[in-house]
Amino acid sequence: MLEVALAMLERDGSWLVQLRDDIPGIVSPGTWGLFGGHLDPGESPDQALKRELLEEINWCSGDLPFWFRHSTSQRIAHFFRSSLPLPLEDLQLLEGQDMVLAGLEELATGQVWSPKLQQARPLAPSLQLALEALRRTP
């Protein structure tokens, strides 16, 4: 069973999202998703998330609070939620086409504008799951 760890990171009322590459065969190509990725053998979800954040945005995150888990017949997704202590300019995009801080109003439209591509792209299913969980959280 495939397992992934994903980070829902908030800064000043907006959420950090990644525009995934347009590569056929990857999960949700060309859509906005959360930073994170698969667990390597023997790796815990929090270890995988720390590794992925370092690989994807060059950020050594430390411990992030676990938020919720979502399971399907194909995949288990571990979601973590935290504030982002750094400004966007201090992060280095090493994987994906773009990254932005998107407000809930924009995310609720189902698409986010990419400054680099100069176009709006849809949300990945994992980001939609996280938004649904946010709506349920008091």
Rank of each mutant, 00 (worst) to 15 (best):
L9M: 14
L9H: 11
L9A: 07
E10W: 13
E10N: 08
E10P: 06
R11H: 12
D12P: 05
D12L: 12
S14D: 07
S14H: 10
W15I: 15
W15E: 10
W15A: 07
L16A: 03
L16N: 03
L16E: 05
L16S: 01
Q18V: 13
L19V: 10
L19K: 15
L19A: 04
R20F: 01
D21R: 09
D21Y: 03
D21H: 04
D22L: 04
I23N: 05
I23W: 08
I23Q: 13
G25R: 12
G25L: 08
G25T: 06
I26G: 02
I26L: 12
V27E: 14
S28H: 14
S28Y: 03
S28D: 13
P29L: 08
P29C: 05
G30I: 08
G30L: 00
W32Y: 03
W32H: 04
W32A: 02
W32N: 09
G33M: 14
G36L: 04
G37P: 04
G37Y: 00
G37V: 06
G37Q: 00
D40T: 02
D40R: 13
D40A: 10
G42D: 07
G42C: 08
S44H: 05
S44Q: 11
P45Q: 04
P45L: 02
D46G: 00
D46H: 11
Q47L: 00
L49K: 00
L49N: 00
L49M: 10
K50C: 03
K50Y: 01
